[in-house]
Amino acid sequence: MARKQNTFPNAEDDISRAAGVPETPQTRSPAYRLAFADDDFLCRDELRGTRIQLEMLKPELILAEKGIESTVVMFGGARIPEPSRKDEARTETLAELSKYYDQAREFARLMTIKSMESYGREDVIVTGGGPGVMEAGNRGAADAGGASMSLNIVLPHEQAPNEYCTPDLCFNFHYFATRKIHFLMRAKAITVFPGGFGTLDELFETLTLIQTGRMERMPVLLFGEEFWRKIINWDALADAGTISAEDIKLFHFVETAAEAVQIIEDFKEIVEPLDEPLIDSTIPEQSVS
């Protein structure tokens, strides 16, 4: 991308010039460092807002340069093994859930073929870049010969991004909040495979944003009805009145990649009109002074 002409020196040139200044007591002082080239300064607690802004801006600029306009999100557990390695799973349940690795891989392959019809601008697969379901998603995109996004995060126990992540679309985050915004801000569909706390967090944030009207309604597809009904009693939430019966229409259970792709393609036709507002209208409005 050509650099815009500017009458002022650019930042890169000034970093080089500053590095060539003779070393003196003054130039060795941290105070002398250029603010934007001073890691110690940028990592201060007072700069947290700036760091959040940078984490928002960096992927946004790169994706704009790549021409990526929409994504299909894949959430799911890092512990779901590839079927050929299910004997290494720590529980029998994880071994049984390994079938969803293959479904995730096939789903990503099918969606990437669709994405390539728009030259990789639309329906780009995005995962968390880790192992398990995330690896399957990136791997399926690679099977189709296309690119996929991965949004990694620095964790004490996390390994490097999986080998199938497209290098130019592999991002790393410090803040969960900015990472989740990038997951959802371009999404046209959300798929959720069996997983743990992280997957549940991502699922419920997605449902909350749609329920409250803070995000457009879109296909939210939960792979593995037996798994999801076992760990979350959706009907009990509706019976208790803590959610509306209408809220259960915000997602669909699926079992196979082909089924999920079909629902995404037919979404406009299958969406049922909601009988009542999703937001509880009994909550009084708050005045703003």
Results as ranks from 00 to 15, higher is better:
Gly241Lys: 09
His182Phe: 11
Ser244His: 03
Pro81Cys: 07
Gln5Pro: 01
Val73Gly: 10
Arg3Glu: 10
Phe251Gln: 08
Ala160Gln: 14
Trp234Glu: 06
Thr7Ala: 13
Thr256Ala: 00
Ile279Thr: 13
Met218Arg: 15
His157Ile: 02
Gly77Ile: 09
Ser29Leu: 14
Thr112Phe: 08
Lys114Leu: 11
Glu205Asp: 10
Arg28Ala: 15
Pro194Ser: 00
Asp247Val: 00
Pro219Ile: 09
Thr208Asp: 07
Asn10Ile: 06
Thr112Asn: 00
Val154Leu: 13
Glu216Gly: 02
Gly196Ile: 09
Leu207Ser: 07
Glu255Asp: 03
Ile153Lys: 06
Gly76Phe: 10
Lys188Met: 07
Glu122Ala: 01
Ile190Asp: 06
Ala260Leu: 09
Met116Ile: 09
Glu55Ile: 08
Gly132Lys: 02
Arg48His: 12
Ile52Asn: 01
Arg217Thr: 03
Ala95Tyr: 01
Val261His: 10
Ser70His: 06
Asp102Thr: 15
Leu278Asp: 01
Pro219Leu: 10
Val126Phe: 02
Thr91Gly: 04
Ser16Met: 12
Phe173Lys: 15
Asp87Ala: 12
Glu255Ile: 02
Met56Asn: 14
Glu202Asn: 09
Glu135Arg: 14
Cys165Leu: 07
Leu250Phe: 06
Gly76Trp: 05
Ala18Gly: 05
Lys188Ala: 12
Tyr101Cys: 05
Ile264Val: 15
Arg85Tyr: 08
Gly128Asp: 11
Ser98Lys: 11
Met74His: 07
Val73Cys: 14
Met56Gln: 08
Ile279Met: 11
Asn172Met: 14
Ala18Ser: 15
Asn233Arg: 13
Glu255Arg: 03
Gly196Phe: 04
Ser150Glu: 04
Ala19Phe: 00
Glu12Gly: 08
Arg33Cys: 12
Ala177His: 11
Arg51Gly: 01
Ala142Asn: 06
Val133Ala: 05
Leu278Met: 14
Glu96Ile: 00
Ala147Glu: 12
Pro131Arg: 02
Gln103Pro: 08
Phe183Leu: 09
Leu207Asn: 14
Thr24Arg: 06
Ala147Trp: 03
Glu216Trp: 04
Asp38Trp: 10
Tyr119Trp: 00
Ser281Ile: 10
Arg90Asp: 13
Ala78Thr: 13
Ile15Ala: 14
Ser70Gln: 02
Glu269Met: 04
Leu207Val: 12
Asn10Ala: 01
Ala257Thr: 01
Ile270Met: 02
Ser289Asn: 09
Ile231Trp: 11
Gln5Ile: 03
